[in-house]
Design a protein around this nucleic acid. Structure first.
Length: 424
RNA sequence: GUGGGCGUAGCUCAGCUGGUAGAGCCCUGGAUUGUGAUUCCAGUUGUCGUGGGUUCGAGCCCCAUCGUCCACCCCA
């Protein structure tokens, strides 16, 4: 048997039954971002591999084993973007957007990581990302967190998520902390599991967010980043917490919160839910003050976050949020060849006169009864009936499908007037 | 990359200790000629994921393979 070609593993189609929900979600996020004065930016899906190696970090899992990397025809190494920040920074530097000015930007679109798919984790997944450049203080961190909180609130998901917060300090203070941590875990090496032992010298902070319950005790007694923060980072964090308190945004300080990408510094945060299984991070972000410089720009403070769209959609699906109108307002049923030719002209006229109207025209052979069934199934409020009689009289029979109302025969202008009341 | 569960009609699934396939939904037609959500009647749908093995005989047992889901890992 010939095998049908299937979608690439971990890359899903978004079918018509869910696209309205996606558009609703995207619409809410865009509206909120705009209400904070953020502008949209669109970057290519493909970037030079070097960009991601330099920004995400050579020793991260993403770069080591999760990137879709391949050679262009001329031999250049290209990579399908595994996240949006790197490309966004590259674009803003390249276009001079950071020259003596700050930028507040958002983007959305697919990202690609070669991981084993599971609930809430796919090889092509979608993010809505927000980035702010050229602003060094805790005020912009607060703005971003407030924005993310508002997004959740608008979507009715405020009670589904908890805000986790931590500070990773500057690169220098983190270096000191890192050594303390290695020293601590070295002394208890026997208690570490295999994963953690592997991470001990490569990325000891990752041991902190291990899920192994046998390590919980050991981890809870480990040195805390908070005790090693430099003065600047400490003041930054205190300032941010005060602003969050003012805004009455509850948060949970989480000394074990470590982000997976190397470029983060100072503030990091995550909105986490317990309703999605193992992949519960809905939204995550933080500051990345050294990245712009690292990619060749002038030293520029920066912060941002990204929302995992699939995870949001899954939460919204449970709540049956449904706001987007796609059903046609009227369905055109026709009997006979003359009626069909009349009807197709009529449908065009209606679309010209009422641009907001959604007209679904019956196509293909079907009995009158079957056409009405289709009209009902389409969700249309009205069926427009055309047969020989209507063609002769130049009228259209209007049948109301969703209300007790006697049907009527209308001339074109009357019909347009009537249909106009169903458009909004 | 490592584990475990599952793969039967378009969808959701049933199929008893092995005897060459079923239900509901959907779709189509009909219950007198041009009037839809209900009801009734009728009909279509499958090399039971794929390949091999055991057996007189396999959807059911064994092996392999692919796919999928969940978890580890990782992260949005």
């Amino acid at each position: 048997m010939q095998k049908n070609i299937q979608a690439i593993r971990g890359m899903n189609d978004i079918l018509p039954e869910s696209t309205p929900l996606w558009r609703y979600l995207e619409g809410v996020l865009q509206t909120v971002a705009a209400s904070y004065g953020y502008q949209e930016i669109r970057m290519p899906l493909l970037e030079s591999t070097e960009l991601f190696k330099r920004s995400i970090g050579e020793v991260t899992d993403i770069v080591e084993k999760e990137m879709y990397t391949f050679a262009d025809r001329n031999g250049d190494s290209l990579t399908l973007r595994p996240e949006g920040t790197a490309g966004c920074v590259r674009a803003t530097i390249e276009s001079g957007l950071l020259h003596n000015q700050s930028q507040r930007l958002w983007y959305q679109g697919p990202m690609f990581r070669h991981e084993r798919p599971q609930r809430g984790r796919y090889r092509q997944f979608h993010q809505f990302g927000v980035e702010a450049f050229g602003l060094a203080g805790p005020d912009i961190d607060a703005e971003l967190i407030l924005m993310s909180a508002r997004m959740l609130e608008r979507l009715g998901l405020k009670d589904n998520a908890v805000l986790h917060l931590n500070s990773l300090g500057t690169v220098e203070s983190r270096q000191i902390y890192r050594e303390k941590l290695i020293h601590y875990f070295e002394q208890h090496q026997a208690q570490l599991d295999e994963d953690s032992r592997n991470r001990l010298y490569r990325n000891p902070m990752r041991i902190l967010d291990s899920k192994n319950p046998q390590l919980r005790d050991l981890i809870s007694r480990a040195p805390k980043m908070g005790d090693y923060l430099d003065e600047d980072s400490r003041r930054h964090l205190v300032g941010l917490l005060a602003m969050l308190d003012d805004a009455r945004i509850p948060y949970q300080l989480d000394p074990c919160l470590v982000r997976g990408l190397d470029y983060y510094s100072k503030t990091v945060f995550e909105w986490v839910t317990d309703q999605l299984g193992a992949q519960g991070t809905l939204c995550a972000g933080g500051r990345f003050d050294t990245l712009v410089e690292h990619l060749g720009g002038k030293p520029t403070g920066a912060a941002g976050f990204a929302i995992g769209m699939e995870r949001m959609v899954e939460l919204l699906r449970d709540r049956r949020v449904h706001d987007v109108q796609v059903a046609p307002q009227c369905y055109l049923a026709m009997m006979g060849e003359a009626a069909q030719r009349y009807g197709i002209q009529l449908a065009e006229t209606l679309r010209s006169r009422l641009p907001q109207l959604r007209v679904l025209m019956n196509c293909g052979d079907a009995g009158f009864k079957a056409q009405l069934k289709r009209a009902d199934k389409s969700g249309a409020a009205i069926a427009l009936l055309i047969g020989d009689d209507e063609v002769r009289q130049n009228r259209v029979t209007v049948k109301y499908l969703r209300e007790e109302r006697t049907q009527e025969q209308l001339l074109l202008e009357q019909l347009i007037e009537r249909l106009a009341t169903f458009v909004n």
